[in-house]
Amino acid sequence: MATRKLILNQEVDRLGAAGDVVEVKAGYARNLLIPRGWARPWSAGAEKDVQALRKARQARQLADRDEAIALKEKLEASTARIEMKAGKGGRLFGAVTPALVAEALTAVVGHEFDRRQVALTGHVKSAGTYTATVRVHDEITANAKFAVIGKA
C-alpha cells in the first residue's frame, strides 16, 4: 500500500488541523484531499511554510483561548430555541440537524457557528430539551442546551 505525505491546508475531521504533516493512502490524497484543496504534497520547501503556519496558529490560539473560554461559559448558561413543525405527541416532521442547532446558537450567543462545530448525540426527532457538544476551540468544547418546540 502506497502512502503519501501531505500538508493539510485546513482542518480535516479525524485527520488533523491546518499545517499538520500527515501520511495517508495515495488514493485518498489523489482523489479527495488534493483536488478539494484541503492538502498539498509535502516537500522540504513546504516544510518551512508549515513551521511559519504553526507559529502563527499558536500565537492566534493564545489570544483566542480567552475568548473561547468566555464563549463556552455563555453557551452553557443559555438555551437556544428551535421551532419545527410537529405532529401529535411532539413527533417532528424531519429531524434537527447540526446546521439548525448552529443557527439557533448563533442567534442566542451572537457568535457565528458552523455546522461542523456542532455534534449531536443521536437523532433528534421529537420535541424536548437536548444537549449538543460544540467545539469552540481546538482544546475547548461546550455542552450547549437547546429546546426543540413543536408547532402545529
Results as ranks from 00 to 15, higher is better:
I140S: 10
G87N: 06
I149C: 02
K48S: 14
D114K: 07
A70I: 02
L71G: 06
A68R: 09
T106H: 01
V50R: 01
R54H: 15
D66N: 13
T133R: 15
A70T: 03
E139A: 13
W38S: 01
V108D: 03
D49G: 15
R54P: 01
T121Q: 15
I7M: 04
D49N: 14
E47T: 12
R36T: 02
A127I: 11
D114V: 07
A77V: 04
L32N: 02
A77G: 11
L6V: 02
D138M: 05
G128P: 07
D64A: 15
R36C: 00
M1A: 04
K72T: 01
A152Q: 11
K74D: 04
T141S: 15
E73W: 08
E83F: 09
K88V: 12
E47Q: 15
G19Y: 01
D13Y: 02
E76Q: 07
F146V: 10
A56D: 08
A44Q: 13
G89I: 08
G45Y: 13
E47L: 11
I140D: 10
V50M: 13
K125F: 11
E73Q: 14
L6P: 07
T133D: 12
A56L: 11
E112M: 01
K48A: 15
A152C: 05
E83S: 08
T79G: 08
A80D: 00
T129Q: 15
V22C: 00
F146W: 09
M1S: 07
A46H: 09
E11V: 01
T3Q: 09
A104N: 09
R36Y: 01
A119M: 11
A144I: 09
A80I: 04
I140C: 08
A107M: 08
A68T: 07
V50N: 03
A147L: 13
A18T: 02
G90I: 07
A144L: 04
N143I: 05
K55T: 13
P41H: 09
A59V: 09
A127M: 07
I140Y: 11
W42P: 05
G128Q: 05
D138S: 15
V50Y: 07
A152W: 09
D64T: 09
I69N: 07
L100W: 04
L92G: 06
G122E: 10
I82N: 03
V148H: 07
V50W: 06
D114W: 03
T131V: 14
D13S: 09
L53I: 13
A127S: 14
V50D: 06
L6K: 00
K48P: 10
A147Q: 15
A142C: 12
P41F: 04
F93L: 12
E11T: 02
A18V: 05
R57F: 12
A59I: 06
M84V: 06
G90Y: 09
V101R: 01
A59N: 11
K151A: 09
K151N: 08
A102T: 00
K74W: 00
A70K: 13
T79I: 10
D13C: 00
V109H: 06
